[in-house]
């Protein structure tokens, strides 16, 4: 698949069909994949694809706003929803980007893998997709890991392995089976069942750890505001010093700002240095929006987002 990808990129760059291409390349460590910007044909051979290509590259297309030409990028099915949303939110024009879809068969969660293997990711030299399992190479030895052990949470209920809006695709997705009964909203429902005080304690404990590095905001495709509310000086919403007691405000405001826009790409949770389960917070809003307003973000270009729309007979519990 990598050959096919590299050929395609060489071709597109040669044509002048795009100015540069955004994909993945090997990072410093073998198990570490980083985004890669290919501006010249000769660099195309750096591009790779595999179960460790975790990043959602969609946010980078915003740079193409000021570009005369087009920019190409590689997307997984889940990330393609970010493209739909960016177009919908008028951040980028669809014809400014060349979308190359890749058949994704599940991504590895490095934290889960470290736990299962008992070694740090630095020692993992290769991870290969083999249908229902991953072939993991550690120190020259290959071991097989069932996908259900190490898949990213979002991959368990992946509804969109191939997105619907490609300019080019790199092949058909092979369906894989996972031995798991986890449902999309399991984690959220588990929390919903807890008594109120326990939920309070749970979230306070999570928010307490936050060091307000803003990584979740920086990585989020939906956080493209030129001036973020948290950076505003007048009115100042949050203290200049990251006070722990304002962490809750930070996370709740982020959650409401992403209501109806979050596509559950899971990037916030992945980049969080203190492992706050942010996905659960956003997932809750997603669940409510699906139940109350029958809407899912990133699926269609022509549906109206739920919070800029209303129905006369919406549920009204407010008397």
């Amino acid at each position: 698949m990598e050959d096919k990808l590299q050929e395609l990129v060489v071709e597109l760059l040669g044509d002048g069909a795009m100015e540069y291409f955004i994909g993945y390349r090997q990072g410093f460590e073998p198990s570490h994949v980083v985004p890669c910007f290919v501006t010249d044909k000769s660099e195309a051979d750096r591009l790779i694809w595999g179960p460790l290509c975790l990043q959602n590259l969609s946010k980078y297309v915003l740079q193409a706003r000021d570009l005369d030409g087009k920019v190409g990028l590689l997307v997984k099915g889940c990330d393609a929803r970010a493209i739909v949303e960016l177009v919908k939110q008028h951040q980028i024009e669809r014809d400014k980007i060349v979308v190359v879809g890749v058949p994704c068969e599940g991504q590895v969660d490095p934290r889960k893998m470290e736990q299962v293997l008992g070694v740090s990711m630095e020692q993992v030299t290769d991870v290969e997709d083999a249908g229902d399992e991953f072939l993991v190479k550690v120190g020259g030895e290959v071991s097989k890991l069932g996908k259900e052990q190490v898949l990213r949470d979002k991959c368990f209920y992946c509804k969109h392995p191939t997105s619907f809006d490609y300019d080019y695709t790199l092949g058909e997705v092979q369906p894989f089976t996972i031995d798991s009964e986890s449902e999309e909203y399991d984690a959220v429902e588990k929390l919903e069942e807890l008594p109120l005080e326990e939920r309070r304690a749970y979230w306070l404990k999570q928010f307490e750890r936050c060091i307000r590095c803003n990584a979740c905001r920086e990585v989020c495709y939906g956080c493209y505001c030129k001036e973020c509310i948290f950076d505003r000086t007048d009115p100042r919403w949050l203290d200049r010093t990251p006070l722990p007691r304002e962490n809750e405000i930070y996370h709740l405001i982020r959650a409401v700002h992403l209501a109806g826009r979050c596509i559950d790409c899971g990037e916030c949770e992945r980049v969080c240095p203190v492992n706050i389960p942010l996905g659960r917070l956003y997932k809750k809003l997603q669940k409510d929006i699906a139940e109350l307003f029958d809407y899912e973000a990133g699926m269609e270009y022509d549906t109206v987002p739920p919070l800029v729309d209303f129905e006369l007979d919406d549920q009204d519990p407010f008397l």
Binding site: R200, A201, W203, V256
Partner: peptide, 8 residues
């Protein structure tokens, strides 16, 4: 719903 979810 969200506030209730975080225990308010």
């Amino acid at each position: 719903n969200l506030l209730q979810f975080v225990g308010i």
